[in-house]
Write a protein that binds this DNA or RNA. Structure first.
Lengths: 346, 346
DNA sequence: AGCGCTTACGAAAGCGCTTTCGTAGCCTAT
DNA sequence: ATAGGCTACGAAAGCGCTTTCGTAAGCGCT
């Protein structure tokens, strides 16, 4: 293996290959205007010497920035760390670097991070996580991204964002519908929803799916209590407490993600409410611990790692005339946290 | 492909402030040789215009690279995503960018990622996750890092690595001892260990702690069956299966991290072994789901997010003459997965 | 007044690369 | 033979910044 020398520059490679700097650059970039023979020689020398281009010089000189900026709500949320994992895998295959920024589920901060990434001249921007129901912010973000794309940058998002860019769309509505149908089939008629922050499109879409399932079964949506809280484990606890207090007749709780479902289970356990005998609980996402909760969680599986891969793959393709969309598919995973609605009255 | 757009440059700021490029640069970098008055004016103008320096130009010109390379085993492992979260927080405060690379728990690959980060000219390298018991790899890594530091780079690691750099040391041995003592105090005498890959220093250290606790109680270490497997949930399942088969008399299983503990609980549940009545289980790390497993997991808490913060903080300080070391502390968290040893044992 | 010393600033030299532009050298068409 | 068009390559101009070096101005000292 070649020793990656201390300060090997392209001139060194060029000199060794007996060509000019310009030719060496062209040869390594695989550009036109170099004979096959010379190009081969340059590549050969470059490999022997273990040359790696200085990305700062390369980018400054107007070449491609080979780094991918990834914005997530919070990296220690399993949903996002699995997505990140997929992105990192593809990036490694492509020789790209991944920079991760936190938005903390705050539209304002997300915009700030976005601007920061653009200012840092990354080549590709990936936004994971839900869109926001925030006109102003979305408009500003859209403007930034448009300018970024005009300058040659590539963008892809995961989730429904009104940003006019390529998108990987999690099967949120269909998944919500699958969950609703599952519970209805089990005989549940008193269903409460532990929903995340109202402003998130993910929350809205999943909720719409649940509502659609109820409507299909001729149930009134007024009978569907929706409790909004943080889209986290603690938010789930809070929501569950409120559901127990305000809607004690519920026989099932739909948490709109697994983090919340975890909190719901925790709260129910604290109140000695048996799951699923007394109350069924479902989540959404199928993060890896869902199978290990007590009881194991019925949920909708989204292919998070795959979603990360898809998003970067989209961004790596040349831009299309219209934004592309890729759906993810979903799978209902029935485990132990759901069961038939209890007979008679609780 | 992507080209930097029509962006604000430092000359623009300088012009607007009525000073030269050099002075503007010095003012913004907070260097000597600029009067307070002029410096203030430059900063003021810079802020007004929303100027953000081009990091590529800055780094190329010889300034420090403002990106942090973070090597983790796997980002979707909660242990690492919590560490990453801490690193990202501090980085955001300092205006740094974080690049994440996967090592996949493979020494060879870790070395490759390390070289890649160095070649990419990051300014700071953070290696999270266990060291390896691999002389050759450690020697090569140490050489690379030494050269990197000689060139002005900064390095810090989390965990015990024989790399001669600043380190954040998780309280692995003391934590192992705490766990061992806890079980011994509960009357357990037949304890089995579900350990991760033998080559990891983390595994060795935690195990040593457990062994020390046993020794303090006058127990022979021969009586401590150690089953090695992957340092993951699935590894935990495998290890538990083997323990049930080969050491059925065990009344407690120590998993050397929470991921394995999760697998152990899962396997025990599948075999209808009651926890903690028949077998107690403990983990290590206290990842956020530990409290939500069934039963909730007794474990040793390590301040992962804090560890990430500490590592970057160390790297941000100027290099000391000798590598610094920071211990993390630990807390035994007793939950429902441990209880008194069943009566009537040999 | 003359000398040195410090201070505050500007001019200009790179950092390592990509890209434009210019030019030999060769090939084909007249 | 000459003109015109390619092709393969080199020289050199930046990209936006930091830093070195030079200098004018201000200071205290003899």
């Amino acid at each position: 293996m070649p020793r990656p020398g201390p300060r090997l520059r392209l001139v060194d490679v060029a000199e060794r290959a007996g060509v000019s700097l310009a030719t060496a650059s062209r040869a390594l970039a695989g550009r036109e205007g170099v004979s096959e023979e010379v190009a081969d020689r340059v590549r050969q020398v470059s490999r022997e010497l273990g040359y790696v281009a200085n990305p700062y010089a390369r980018t400054l000189a107007g070449g491609a920035s080979s780094t991918v900026g990834l914005i997530v709500h919070q990296i220690d949320d399993p949903y996002f760390s699995e997505i990140a994992s997929g992105v990192i895998e593809v990036a490694a295959e492509e020789g790209l670097l991944v920079q991760i920024a936190h938005s903390g589920r705050d539209p304002e901060n997300e915009l700030r991070q976005l601007r920061h990434l653009i200012a840092q001249r990354v080549g590709i921007i990936l936004i994971a996580g839900s869109g926001y129901d925030d006109q102003r912010m979305e408009a500003e973000a859209r403007a930034e991204l448009a300018a970024f794309q005009r300058a040659g940058g590539r963008v892809a998002v995961i989730g429904r964002h009104a940003l006019g860019v390529d998108a990987v769309l999690p099967d949120n509505e269909a998944g919500g519908r699958a969950i609703g149908t599952h519970l209805l089939d089990l005989g549940h008629r008193r269903i409460a929803v532990a929903a995340g922050t109202p402003g998130l499109t993910t929350v809205a879409d999943r909720l719409a799916g649940v509502a659609a399932a109820l409507a299909e079964h001729g149930l009134s949506l007024d009978a569907l209590p929706v409790v909004h809280s943080d889209f986290t484990r603690d938010g789930g606890r809070v929501a569950a407490e409120r559901i127990l207090r305000e809607h004690p007749e519920s026989t099932a709780v739909i948490a709109l993600n697994d983090a919340m479902a975890t909190g719901v289970l925790s709260a129910l356990r604290a109140h000695r409410v048996r799951v699923p005998d007394r109350v069924s609980v479902v989540g959404f996402d199928d993060v890896s611990v869902a199978a290990d909760l007590a009881p194991s969680l019925t949920t909708v599986r989204l292919p998070m790692t795959q979603m990360g891969r898809m998003a970067l793959a989209l961004a790596l393709q040349p831009r299309a005339t219209r934004p592309r969309r890729r759906s993810t598919g979903h799978t209902l995973i029935v485990r132990d946290s759901t069961g038939p609605a209890p007979a008679g009255r609780p």
